[in-house]
Design a protein around this nucleic acid. Sequence first.
DNA 1: ACTATCCGTTAGAAATCACTTACGGTTAGT
DNA 2: ACTAACCGTAAGTGATTTCTAACGGATAGT
Lengths: 103, 103
Amino acid sequence: MANQNQLFAALADPTRRQVFERLIAGPAAVGELARGLPVSRPAVSQHLKVLKEAGLVADRAHGTRRIYHIDPHGLGALRAWLDQFWGNALAAFQAELEKEQEP
Amino acid sequence: MANQNQLFAALADPTRRQVFERLIAGPAAVGELARGLPVSRPAVSQHLKVLKEAGLVADRAHGTRRIYHIDPHGLGALRAWLDQFWGNALAAFQAELEKEQEP
DNA sequence: ACTATCCGTTAGAAATCACTTACGGTTAGT
DNA sequence: ACTAACCGTAAGTGATTTCTAACGGATAGT
């Protein structure tokens, strides 16, 4: 679970990113999330499934409602990917700039 | 150019991520990139277009070849997005953990 | 028990995406 | 000029995605 494909694909959808960012503000139930979005509740449910399989959110049953909250695993994996390339990417860009200034 | 949608959507495709990660190792022409991938050259060309519009790569004409290289704008935007939520996400998760231990 | 609320899943439709093939334009070399 | 190499774009196709509507299961309250 939570490979890079799932991770980036999950965050690629705008609605899904909106759901995720909303959950960072605090846990919420499916209905609450759907109320603030222009899509139906089942759609939100499906988005949450994708986010969950990517390791970005987790859920907990609370009565008849399911409370979703942030799962740090996903963001951690994303940060790890970014950190892996951040330094090298900047170095590569610098090298590119230098080559550009020698005719 | 380079809004979050384009950014995440660009990195969502595995082939596109492969192209991008290859370019971090150093600039390369389209044909070179295609040679190391299981897709055709036009496909790589289309992927590069998406990456370019997302601000992740840039190109420079060099003879008949177009040399693509990393553009730090894209990764910078990604890092900015991540930094914006990183602290809050961890805090939200911590708060969630505490609520879990009080029945 | 009965009812209302909340939710996940399924099925199907419309839209989007990634790919190949074919084509045309530009540059370097002879 | 002519040729060869390199590349972007257009057109078309099959697969994937996102959505809604409909259904069924589980829980809380009366």
